[in-house]
Design a protein around this nucleic acid. Structure first.
Lengths: 344, 344
DNA sequence: ATGAAAGCGCTAACAA
DNA sequence: TTGTTAGCGCTTTCAT
């Protein structure tokens, strides 16, 4: 029996890393159930091709051993990852978390995992991010991608892609339509007796919300002055508020909730009461709108609907079903306390 | 020559799915560069073991063919996924997006991908979510997990795990310490002449912020009445505001920013001016705090710091470096406009 | 209904 | 320095 110095033992033995139980493989299940590996495989992928009692034995064995299939092996073999990529510009924008959440819920029901990646609004990082993600997913949802049309077309050649708020011929897309919501907003303001309105325009002319807004307000016989385009930030709203008060407008429609909050903030500072003196409307219906003081009338885009349709459209595309389909997501006005009868 | 009915052709031929270019493998690169696969493999995993000019040839070939290694094959082979799991209770809570973002940034620098999963605060789903994620990552960060201590210990046996706001002996953890921020808040209120304060307590007694708050306020000779515990929601704040006004307190510390916003909202409705009549302080320093009216004095927990340390700690654990380490993340007060001299 | 065996793309011995 | 080869865990023909 060899002599062992105290304290030496642990240092000399190969240190077991934290993986206590090495992963259970299909082989061990097969052995435990007394069948071949292929039968175990079938038990999981095509249960109806396995004799009921054999199936039961396999399931019991698998449960006892805590077996779950190795996704890496599966996708290496089958070329499928059972994952969907979601490429978004900024998860910090409160519009996105509910979408991620809803998409995850939908995907999970269908056995998929969602791999979200934030490009931090950097065009330069986007391609890199997409490349990294693309190898790990069966398809991707690209939100307001800054890639060129050619690059997108090229990418869609390589793998299933769904675009949100971009249009490239032949690639399936989700379009957010604010038409209904904007029209309701105009109607709402009109009914409250407003006649002179301001639109605070956020950036990105290609997705500009300006056109439909101008049309809707004109249709309701409301004059509309447009400020911007600025960046869609809180400070933009702060800045715009001053422009509003120096005009004779009684209502403001902001590019999104965040900008609207900036307007609200500065208006309060200037002693302008909302909604008594000025009415304010946002877009997106984020958490910010519900929790602001006064609570913000805004145009809701349903995250649920959006996410569900996006996931389904992507899955269809992966399955070879959706040739360049376009799905439109509607919107509607959520009246809260930031709008009221025209004052001043 | 067989007769082919018109229109039959397309239906009979196997339909090419959208993968235009089949993925480029290491073999094709090897062939193009005139070397063996192992040399190509080395060119990517250990470039210094390859002759410079050979390396160049391989890189050129890889670039021309658009080769990127297949992660599934890599992880099947090496048992590593180069991914980190982040299990959070609710991405919709504005506290989390910046953390996800910062962690992704950190992980990416180190060649890792972050796989985030939202458990939707459902204890029942958490285990399932964790199981699904665990097979796809090299380690996980579990945020305020609802799992039992035993289950967590068991899980940590299986794979590297870092806990946030939970303590289980032997498992590395990140603890958010509000001590500094709370102390500064007390100091701040004291300096403004407040003497009677209210704490609106959110739920989850195990992570209760109550104890350190009681201690800090007592140390600054401030009386403290505690409401709750309630759920950490906006409505909780709304409800609590009424309790505040019916007490003689002049300052409120809320469980988090969201609750504080509820307080602000209801106070405004009741005609109580903030900060003239009552001062309000939140916790977390989310987007909500910056954009509220008045802007909210709050206790900041640095997402950057938190995420970076969590990622590093997990990576250390994966690398077999961090035996049950505990990392503490500090906090500090961010004074804004919701606090001021004691009134009433 | 079940089993045997090939091979997905890659890395890491081991050889040369 | 470079090449040959086994095999990671799984699915899927092809046999039986």
């Amino acid at each position: 029996m060899p002599l062992t110095l105290p304290g030496t033992f642990a240092t000399i033995l190969p240190i077991d890393d934290q993986e206590g139980s090495v992963a259970v493989t299909i082989r061990q299940v097969a052995q435990a159930a007394g069948v071949s590996v292929s039968t175990v495989s079938r038990a999981f992928t095509a249960p109806d091709q396995v004799q009921p009692q054999t199936l039961q034995r396999i399931r019991d064995a698998a449960a006892k051993l805590g077996y779950t299939p190795n996704p890496a092996a599966r996708s290496l073999r089958g070329g499928k990852t059972e994952s969907l990529g979601l490429i978004i510009p900024d998860i910090t924008n409160p519009f996105f978390p509910p979408i991620f959440k809803a998409m995850q819920a939908r995907a999970r029901r269908l056995g998929y995992t969602v791999l979200a990646a934030d490009t931090d609004e950097r065009e330069s990082d986007e391609l890199e991010t997409i490349t990294a993600v693309s190898k790990r997913v069966d398809g991707m949802i690209l939100w307001a991608s800054t890639l060129s049309e050619d690059r997108l077309a090229e990418l869609a050649e390589t793998m299933p892609v769904v675009l949100v708020n971009r249009h490239v011929p032949g690639i399936p897309e989700i379009q957010i339509s604010l038409t209904a919501g904007i029209s309701q907003a105009a109607e709402h303001l009109k009914a409250y007796g407003h006649t002179r309105c301001v639109f605070v325009n956020g950036s990105r002319p290609e997705l500009s919300r300006g056109k439909s807004i101008r049309e809707a307000f004109e249709a309701h016989d409301l004059s509309l002055v447009e400020f911007g385009p600025y960046e869609p930030r809180f400070e933009t709203g702060v800045h715009a508020a001053t422009l509003v008060t120096s005009s004779d407008a009684t209502a403001v429609l902001a590019h999104n909730d965040l900008v609207a909050l900036g307007v609200l903030h500065q208006l309060a500072k200037l002693g302008v009461d909302v909604p008594r003196d000025v009415s304010v409307i946002g877009i997106d219906d984020t958490l910010l709108a519900e929790t602001s003081t006064p609570s913000l009338t805004t145009i809701r885009i349903s995250a649920q609907e959006l996410a569900t349709h996006a996931a389904d459209l992507l899955l269809d595309t992966i399955g070879g079903r959706a040739g360049g389909r376009v799905v439109e997501i509607g919107s509607r006005l959520i009246p809260r306390s930031s709008t009221g009868p025209a004052g001043r």
